[in-house]
Computed example of a mutant assay.
Amino acid sequence: MARVLIIGAGGVGQVVAHKCAQVPEVFSDICLASRTEAKCKKIAAQLSRPIETAGVDADNVPELVALIRRFRPDVVINVALPYQDLHIMDACLETGVHYVDTANYEPPDVAHFEYKWQWDYQARFKERGIMALLGSGFDPGVTNVFTAWAKKKHFDTIEELDIIDANAGDHGMPFATNFNPEINIREVTANGKFYCDGAFVETKPMEISKVYDFPAGIGPKKIYLLWHEELESLARFLKPHGLKAARFWMTFSDNYLKHLEVLQNVGMTRIDPVMYNGHEVIPLQFLKALLPDPASLGPLTKGKTCIGCLIKGTKDGKPRRYYVYNICDHQEAYREVQSQAISYTTGVPAMIGAMMVATGTWKGTGVFNMEDFDPEPFMQKLNIHGLPWTEQFLEG
């Protein structure tokens, strides 16, 4: 059994706490920590068994180190902000504790998404004898595992990978984001990028789109090409296996895009500071304070998400087209953990990734992405812990 420290008490942190509490045979002791301990206590009151809570500033490495040394976890799950990844990794290095996160580091002053900063920790984590498991959410995370599963079970070569993410839910609000508004808007307004014939090609934001017909009654939805960090690691993983193209697609409603365009036009999505009444203000951070807290959308959101991988390649010399995906219902997620499906689909894989590390199912020293390990045990746990998957072999 293992002791787990969860850092971050937003919507995803709430799901992670619930899911860790559901498996006492794996996680004997749980501590939930955040800058605002009151948020942790509120989540703790929802759980089926007692957990510890703590206040900690995830930007403050000595504070993190002190908390880790006091609680003595076997693994730290980082579901704080991506800006804080390196601070938490530094604290894990100093204390010799395994690390798991759901999103790659990005600097606060520029919307730049890549693994370089975290991959640079490889030698230090290896020397310390501990593991860092990067991107154990859904996308990245489960989509990486889906790809590794397809390679292991169904393909000799993989030529094309399309990761397709649909949120077909409706919360009834004029404009709101389903996860941290600052991170969401930075991601969506950044240039797109995709892998093609050995190199990454950059596009303008939302420049490329098409319609995709989703399963489970979701139907046709317009999807837009974005840059998403798992493409970086998956291109590296699949390049020796014949990869020619890899893309990431996501749905957005016309209403969302209309509001976002207006906010961009008036400068509210800027991430550089501006002076207002003698004070520096970052417009996007101010906008975040005005928008609904994603955690408040749980009871309001109805509908489903569908996230999966559409893969083309060959098996035994014959062409093959394959689709593996998960359907998650917003209301069912809320009934179980009091969070909507966006948080649920990130929080469940974070718990499973920590389970893989804590039980020694996935072993290693250094910095790893999800596809670096055997996908089979993770795929089995998805079916057990609330994210069942479906696979189809398609014509054409």
Rank of each mutant, 00 (worst) to 15 (best):
A2P: 12
I6F: 07
A9S: 11
G10M: 08
G10H: 03
G11R: 00
Q14M: 11
C20P: 09
C20R: 08
E25Q: 15
L32V: 13
R35S: 11
I43S: 04
A44G: 00
A44E: 02
S48G: 13
I51Y: 13
E52Y: 15
E52D: 15
A54Q: 07
P62F: 13
I68F: 09
I68D: 05
R69N: 13
R70D: 14
R72T: 12
R72W: 08
P73W: 04
V75C: 13
I77Q: 14
P82H: 03
D85W: 00
L86F: 01
H87T: 02
Y99P: 04
V100G: 12
T102K: 09
N104A: 10
Y105V: 01
P108E: 14
D109C: 05
V110L: 15
E114F: 04
E114Y: 06
Y115R: 09
Q122L: 06
F125S: 14
F125T: 14
R128G: 02
I130L: 02
G137S: 11
G137R: 10
G137T: 06
V145E: 06
F155C: 04
F155I: 03
E159Q: 12
D165W: 09
A168S: 14
G169K: 05
G169E: 09
G169D: 09
G172L: 07
P174L: 09
T177L: 08
N180I: 10
T189Y: 05
K193R: 14
K193Y: 04
F194K: 01
C196F: 11
G198K: 01
G198S: 01
I208K: 15
K210G: 13
K210M: 15
Y212M: 08
F214V: 15
I223A: 05
I223Y: 04
Y224G: 02
W227H: 13
E229V: 10
L231W: 12
L234F: 03
L234R: 01
K244N: 11
A246G: 06
K258A: 14
K258V: 07
Q264I: 04
N265Y: 08
V266L: 04
D272E: 15
P273M: 06
G278Y: 08
E280R: 15
V281E: 01
L287N: 00
K288Q: 12
K288N: 13
L290I: 05
L291R: 07
A295G: 04
S296P: 07
G298H: 01
T301H: 03
K302E: 08
K304S: 07
K304V: 09
T305I: 10
L310A: 07
K318E: 10
P319Q: 04
R321F: 03
Y323Q: 12
V324S: 02
V324G: 00
H330C: 04
S339T: 10
P349I: 01
M356T: 06
V357S: 03
A358Q: 09
T361A: 12
N369L: 02
N369P: 02
M379E: 03
K381Y: 12
I384G: 00
I384A: 06
W389E: 04
F393M: 10
G396N: 15
